[in-house]
Design a protein around this nucleic acid. Structure first.
Lengths: 99, 99
DNA sequence: CTGGTATTTGCGTATTTTGCCAAATACCCC
DNA sequence: GGGGTATTTGGCAAAATACGCAAATACCAG
């Protein structure tokens, strides 16, 4: 249960979701990812470490750079469900609660 | 993107996952949930608020008590994928990286 | 309205997360 | 070896989370 929570926790940051989005179309190096995330490169590197430690990404060093890859593309299939949560599909959500 | 992250963040705590598990079979009141979670009732209440604010649960007050219900049962379909992340199914995960 | 049960909220504290800078490390090319 | 690029790590401060206790609130029953 803690292990599950760790995976979700790793997904619980906008920058990390942006990284996953970027990696959905193929592997990228840190510098590439840094262009899409708008944070210090060291910060991006730490986000990548979080995702890698959770098992969501894998890394491979090639020459000068480190390439990251989505280890589990099924992650992106979550989004449909997450969107429905956000939009309140299924049941009305009290908007003042969602805020 | 922030909204997505908020949903995942809400899922990123073992007690909250336990709550979702318990609610998978039907709605329950706070006292019932408190039995399955092992934390102060006030803490459980706060976890419930987090899940509700994320749109994952809805609440309905009936008489003396408040019943919580899974708003989006598709959440539990995440688990298959999460398990595969945990187990490293799909692609080999370097264990020394996952640590 | 009084007592009792169910739930939430205020508050203080401990812990975790985030993010930057600067320094360290790794690797390539010359 | 020396310089340059790519990435990670140490250290620190700010912000967010987690959690228990006690108090507040809501509601039912008598």
């Amino acid at each position: 249960m803690q292990a599950r929570a760790d995976v979700f926790k790793a997904l619980g940051h906008p920058s990390r979701l942006a990284i996953i989005d970027a990696l959905a179309s193929g592997e990228l190096c840190v510098l590439d990812l840094n262009k899409t995330v708008d944070a210090d490169m060291s910060t991006v590197s730490r986000h990548l470490a979080v995702l890698r430690n959770a098992g969501i990404l894998s890394s491979q060093k090639r020459g000068n750079q480190v390439f990251y890859k989505l280890e589990c593309p099924c992650i992106t299939t979550f989004y449909g469900c997450v969107e429905s949560v956000i939009n309140g599909t299924g049941q009305p959500i009290q908007l003042e609660d969602v805020k």
